[in-house]
Computed example of a mutant assay.
Amino acid sequence: MTADREPLRTFDDALTALAAGFPADPGAAARHHRRLARLLHPDTAPPDRAAQANAAFAELGRAWQHRSHRLIGAPRHTYVLGDILATGDLATLHTAHTAADRRAVVLKIPRRPRDNDLMTHEAAVLTRLDTVGEPRHRAYAPTLVESFRQRSADGTERVINVLEPLTGFLPLTEVAAAHPAGLDPRDAAWMWRRLLVALGWAHRARLVHGAVFPEHVLIHPEAHGLVLVDWCYATAVGTHLPVLVDRHTDRHHDGYPPEVHHRGPATAATDIHLASACVRDLMGDQAPPPLRAFLRGCLLPSPEARPHDAWALLAELDDVLERLYGPRTFRPFTRPAARAG
């Protein structure tokens, strides 16, 4: 029940309402604040309760300032900012919800205004995937709710991307950490297959993801789902990557394929190299010789010699997997246990 339905008439009413917090709706919250300020102001409070009024009025100011900092207005919705969900290479992800109906969302906020262009670029890429990519594969990328500019009190502007939350997903970095000796190839197989579908879908939309690293590949263990995130690094097929992930630029650690270091154009073969390195590192020494040989072909230095069709590669992978393990069946995957501490 909102404050609009519960008129505040007395000082004690205001104290009770202050403890209950503000309504979710921004307009109702502003009206509620004005009523509380009028009743709790030391000049209008009962004379014998001046000390209590001073303390309550100060608390009201702090609460309203905190709420104002957490409210972010955008063209489509007003959002209530929540906790930090994750910290990415360029941006911080916050939990949030719409003020009007408390719909859960994620706000991706760049840490530096100089990266605003990458947030705008990511929004354009996600829109292209949504409008040009095949609809049946839409779940392989985050869903963009809206993208907007926010100006802070000091005049700084940031482009914020609002995304649908990915509940139940975790990055491949967590999977790898939970299996330091290498993941069973039968479990890695479904992740590999879905990653190739995600890439094939993007490539048909004439896009290269350009940053297929474990932290950008999220899986849903129980549902065998996969989402490829951080599309701000993506580019059109045959063009240069707009930016590189700093920690993966050391060529001695096989981060990017050679054509990226040589400033060559990014193609489907670039993504296939990156994805194959993810899978190779995930399986480690657990991979049997046929899969190792398959991966070596995907990791050849020359992009021209490498596979360049993710769909065709998926069919070849299925043949190898069937020879190794028989007909494909659903294999339950256990979510890594949360670490203590």
Rank of each mutant, 00 (worst) to 15 (best):
L196V: 01
V145D: 02
T120K: 12
P165I: 00
E322Y: 09
N161L: 13
A91M: 03
H179F: 11
A58Y: 06
P301H: 08
A124E: 10
L15A: 00
A266K: 00
L196A: 03
L274Q: 13
A51S: 10
S68E: 13
A123E: 00
R296H: 15
R35W: 09
L36W: 01
D130F: 10
D83M: 10
P142N: 08
A305Q: 12
L183F: 04
T120V: 12
T239D: 14
A74F: 02
L218I: 07
A188Y: 05
D89G: 15
D130L: 10
R323N: 14
R102G: 01
A340Q: 11
R151Y: 03
D4V: 07
K108E: 03
P171W: 06
R9Q: 11
V229K: 04
L129D: 02
R280N: 07
R186M: 04
L170S: 06
D115S: 14
Y79C: 01
L313C: 01
L18I: 01
H41Q: 08
A28S: 15
L195Y: 01
V229R: 04
N161E: 02
G182K: 00
K108P: 00
P221S: 02
L199R: 06
R136K: 11
H248F: 14
E174Q: 12
G326M: 06
E146L: 06
G225V: 01
T16P: 04
E222H: 09
D4F: 07
A55F: 06
T78Y: 12
D12N: 11
A29E: 06
H77K: 06
R335L: 02
L18S: 01
A176L: 06
A50L: 13
T143E: 12
V80E: 15
P221Q: 01
T98P: 07
C232E: 13
A268C: 06
R296L: 11
I109P: 08
R204T: 05
A277G: 12
D230P: 08
D309P: 05
A277H: 13
V227E: 01
L85Y: 03
R76K: 14
P242Y: 00
R103K: 15
L36R: 01
L241V: 03
L313V: 03
L170M: 12
C298E: 04
A312Q: 15
L170D: 08
H33F: 14
E59V: 10
P221C: 00
G341M: 03
D43F: 09
H209N: 09
L274H: 05
L317M: 10
G73M: 09
D271P: 03
T98W: 07
P327N: 06
A287Y: 04
P23T: 00
L126V: 05
V159P: 03
V229F: 04
A139K: 10
T329M: 10
E6N: 09
A17K: 09
R339K: 10
C232Q: 12
A312F: 13
A188I: 04
